[in-house]
Design a protein around this nucleic acid. Sequence first.
DNA 1: TTGCATCTACTACATCTGTAGTATATGTTT
DNA 2: AAACATATACTACAGATGTAGTAGATGCAA
Lengths: 127, 127
Amino acid sequence: MKQFEPSDAELEILQLLWADQPASVRQLFDQIQHRRKVSYTTVLTVMQRMTDKGLVERTKEGKAHLYRAVPREQEVQKSLSQRLLKTAYKGSALHMALHALGQNKVSPEELAELQQWLNTQTSTEDE
Amino acid sequence: MKQFEPSDAELEILQLLWADQPASVRQLFDQIQHRRKVSYTTVLTVMQRMTDKGLVERTKEGKAHLYRAVPREQEVQKSLSQRLLKTAYKGSALHMALHALGQNKVSPEELAELQQWLNTQTSTEDE
DNA sequence: TTGCATCTACTACATCTGTAGTATATGTTT
DNA sequence: AAACATATACTACAGATGTAGTAGATGCAA
């Protein structure tokens, strides 16, 4: 299975696309500009590189291009977390999970979800 | 709090140091060489850069240097997981935790630990 | 003490990444 | 159609990273 490991700038773009696809460079630029100072052509360059890498696809719409993310959000999350799991946690999923959970307040709803997951696991283990 | 975000090669070194400190470049090189083809001076260069960055400290022992990791393993793990949490998971600790747990078999002991953690969380929430 | 083994320092270089400028193409407006 | 706004393509460059070679320092062995 292909691994998608975008850089920071690329991941930022992908996040925007996952939220609202397709999008032009102009639209992406407008959103990013609200957060930090950046040039239009910087965003454009990133998009062009992402196209080359197969991270996004584009179609011509009039004068401009419209871009779509190629990988799904979960795919990228999995690639990146798997990488971290192996390189930083030596494969210890539990430690990584506890670190993730430990650094953010986790809502009761989320705790419930986690409990549910745990239940499915333990019941499977029992049989 | 200082953030430690070592590169891949640097993290590999840190892992070795955390397992067995202090260590000379030679010792580190020997271990790495078993895994992949690499030159002694490559490892040396990485160590020198890590020293400049403050990722390791060294003392002269005879002709060579002995290195020690500066950050503790958990510090680095936290820095890296926090980064991933923010950039890839938009802060959703639960999703990240589930991905970590989902891609490895988690032992019953680990599940129990997780259950324990959950219990502490839910009991705190209740009060 | 002289040479050998080996360690470090320094330099180099390709690739990736973030950044942005310049030139050119293209659609739109008058 | 000419001018204008704007989009893309191409180029450039600095810093980080992974990689490794060369030269010189150093400790030890004969």
